[in-house]
C-alpha cells in the first residue's frame, strides 16, 4: 500500500513539473568570473532598493556565458551575459541562428591586469619587453630564433635581482589571458624588435605574432585554469613566483601581495582611467532585447548597473576596483534607448 501511495505522489510531482515553467520573475545573469563580483554587488543593491527580486548571477567564464546567452529566446534562457571581452562575430552569428538577434551591448568600465608577487619579495619595475623575454617560448638572439635561454630575472634585465623566473598566468579559457598576450607579450615582442625580425624570418605577420605570443612550456610559465584565489595560493607557496591578477583582486589582498609597476606606472584605478597604465581591458554585459518587458526588472537592472550611483567614479564598483568609464553618460543614454548592436 505504502508503495502505491509513494508512486502516486511521485507521479503527481512529475505532472506538476511538466506543467510548470511558470513565469520567471527574476533576472538571470551568467558569464565572466571577472565581472561576477561587480554583478553581485549591483544585484544585491538592486534587490535592496527596488521592489524587484534580486537577480540570480552565475559565473562560469565569458565564453560559457555567451554560449548560454545564445541558446535562444524564452523564459528558460538567461537574460544577460557578462563578458570580460567583446562578443565575437562568430558568437553574434550563433546568437542570430538561435533567434537572438537584438543584443544590447553595455560597457560598464575597465579592469586592469596587474603583476604581483609575495609581499616580502623585492620590488620590480617591469616593461612588456621584460615579460616577453622571460616568458616567450622562443626568443631572437643575434638574429637567430632559439628556445628561451633565460632562467633568472637578472639575465632578462640586469636591473633585476638574481631570482628564478616563474610566473602564474591565467589559462587559455580566461579572457584575461588574451589581454595578457596582446598587451604584454606581443607589445614586448614589438618593443625588443623581435617582431620585426620574426616577420623577416617568417615572411608573414600573423605567423610572427603567433610565435611571439607562444609561452614557454618548460615549467617557468604556469597556466592557472582556476581563478585568482588559486594564483594567490601558488604565489603564497612559491615566494619567487609572479602572479597575474585583476586589479580588483589585488586591491582586496594588498596585505599579501606586492604589485610591480609596468613601464614605470603603478596600477591603480586612476592610472588605468587616464590610460597611463598600459594593461587594461573593457568589461561588458549583453542584454537580450526580446526579454525586456517580458522579464520584470530587466531594463531597470541594466539602468541601475550603469547609473552614476553604481558604476560612477564614487560608486561601490569603483571602490571594489572597477575603473569607471569616462563615457558612462553615453552608455546610460544607450541603455535607456535600448540601442542594439549593429
Amino acid at each position: 500500500m505504502k508503495t502505491v501511495k509513494y508512486t502516486v505522489s511521485a507521479l503527481a510531482l512529475a505532472a506538476v513539473s511538466a506543467t510548470a515553467a511558470a513565469a520567471r520573475d527574476q533576472v538571470q545573469v551568467a558569464g565572466s568570473s571577472t565581472v561576477l563580483p561587480y554583478a553581485t554587488i549591483v544585484a544585491e543593491a538592486f534587490g535592496e532598493n527596488t521592489d524587484f527580486p534580486t537577480p540570480v548571477v552565475e559565473s562560469g567564464g565569458s565564453s560559457a556565458g555567451l554560449k548560454k546567452f545564445c541558446e535562444g529566446v524564452g523564459e528558460n534562457t538567461i537574460d544577460i551575459a557578462n563578458a570580460s571581452r567583446k562578443i565575437k562575430d562568430k558568437e553574434v552569428a550563433a546568437c542570430a541562428e538561435a533567434g537572438v538577434s537584438d543584443i544590447i551591448e553595455v560597457r560598464i568600465g575597465y579592469d586592469g591586469i596587474v603583476f604581483a608577487s609575495d609581499i616580502n619579495g623585492p620590488e620590480f619595475a617591469f616593461t612588456p619587453a621584460d615579460w616577453y623575454k622571460a616568458l616567450a617560448a622562443e626568443v631572437v638572439v643575434d638574429g637567430e630564433l632559439v628556445a628561451n635561454p633565460y632562467t633568472k630575472w637578472n639575465e632578462v634585465n640586469p636591473a633585476f635581482p638574481d631570482q628564478d623566473i616563474l610566473a602564474f598566468v591565467p589559462g587559455t579559457k580566461h579572457g584575461t589571458r588574451e589581454v595578457f598576450e596582446e598587451k604584454v607579450i606581443l607589445a614586448g615582442c614589438e618593443e625588443t624588435g623581435a617582431l620585426e625580425a620574426l616577420v623577416g624570418m617568417k615572411g608573414d605577420e600573423k605567423a610572427a605574432e603567433g610565435t611571439c605570443m607562444a609561452l614557454r612550456t618548460d615549467g617557468r610559465a604556469v597556466d592557472i585554469d582556476g581563478d585568482y584565489t588559486e594564483t594567490l595560493a601558488r604565489v603564497d607557496s612559491n615566494k619567487a613566483g609572479f602572479g597575474v591578477f585583476g586589479l580588483a583582486f589585488y586591491e582586496n589582498n594588498t596585505d599579501k601581495l606586492r604589485v610591480a609597476t609596468m613601464s614605470g606606472v603603478v596600477p591603480s584605478t586612476e592610472s588605468i582611467a587616464s590610460g597611463e597604465y598600459p594593461v587594461s581591458r573593457p568589461l561588458y554585459f549583453y542584454i537580450k532585447k526580446a526579454h525586456i518587458g517580458v522579464i520584470p526588472g530587466l531594463k531597470e537592472y541594466a539602468e541601475f548597473f550603469v547609473s552614476d550611483d553604481m558604476a560612477g567614479p564614487d560608486g561601490p564598483l569603483a571602490a571594489y576596483g572597477l575603473v569607471s568609464d569616462p563615457e558612462l553618460a553615453a552608455t546610460q543614454a544607450m541603455v535607456a534607448a535600448e540601442e542594439t548592436m549593429k
Partner: peptide
Amino acid sequence: IGMVAFVRE
C-alpha cells in the same frame, strides 16, 4: 544546471 549562482532571494 545553473545552481552555482549568486542567489539572494
